[in-house]
Nucleic acid binder design. Structure first.
Length: 204
DNA sequence: TTCTAGATTCGCT
DNA sequence: GCGAATCTAGAAT
């Protein structure tokens, strides 16, 4: 049983504190934190249970890798930490990242899966009743009503917020290569909560 | 201007 | 297990 299912109140940790250090440290620390979405009067909350780190210009798998440079799409990754980098993939799925690092250091953490704890029926409706409410980056985006208008948003204030949650112990954290990437496909930068049913598919 | 691959998901076989 | 859906950024021409 995860602590967020046991009636324990979430820790009141400021976002800036969650963002200290390198993207892989942040990706690890964001496990157990909350993602809160409040659009059109509908509040939905999920606990982050799966993340991937993208390490900046030296990371060949990043949208901001050195060979790509700064472009219109990845511009928000070069901005301040604590803002969102949202992009459309395969013409239909919105993927949500938390920007880390300082201005000019394009690091980010992709949010891959949530354990829904509030507004589950809303998320389920947005997902058209399909299985896997927020299990996978595209599903997470759909469940939380994330789209291009969320790009560059400050995640320390509504309507889209990342906030403290419940610390996850080291022995409960799994690490693996990132899913779906074709470059640097053996770098151990995916982090997930072991045993949580909402963690998405296995690495290829 | 045209082409191609992509940090995915879903439904069908 | 496999292919379609759907569209944009970035690359090629």
């Amino acid at each position: 049983m995860d602590p967020w299912h046991e009636g324990v109140p979430p820790a009141d940790v400021p976002l800036v504190q969650l963002l200290e250090g390198s993207a892989d440290q942040v990706a690890r620390r964001l496990l157990g934190a909350r993602l809160i979405s409040e659009f059109e009067g509908e509040r939905t909350v999920g606990v982050i249970v799966e993340t991937e780190a993208y390490l900046g210009t030296d990371d060949p798998a990043s949208h901001a890798a050195a060979r790509v440079g700064r472009t219109r799409r990845n511009a928000s990754m070069f901005g301040p930490a604590g803002h969102a980098y949202v992009y459309l993939i395969y013409g239909m799925h919105w993927c949500m990242n938390v920007v880390t690092g300082g201005v000019g250091d394009p690091s980010a953490v992709l949010l891959r899966a949530l354990d829904p704890i509030e507004g589950c029926e809303i998320m389920s409706r947005r997902r058209h009743g399909r299985r896997g409410i927020a299990s996978g980056p595209g599903r997470l985006g759909q469940a939380m009503r994330i789209d291009g208008s969320c790009n560059r948003r400050d995640l320390s204030r509504p309507p889209l917020t990342v906030a403290g949650g419940w610390p996850v112990a080291d022995e409960t954290v799994g690490v693996s290569p990132r899913i779906g990437v074709t470059r640097a496909d053996d770098w151990p930068l995916r982090f997930y909560v072991r045993g949580n049913a909402h963690v998405s598919g296995k690495p290829r």
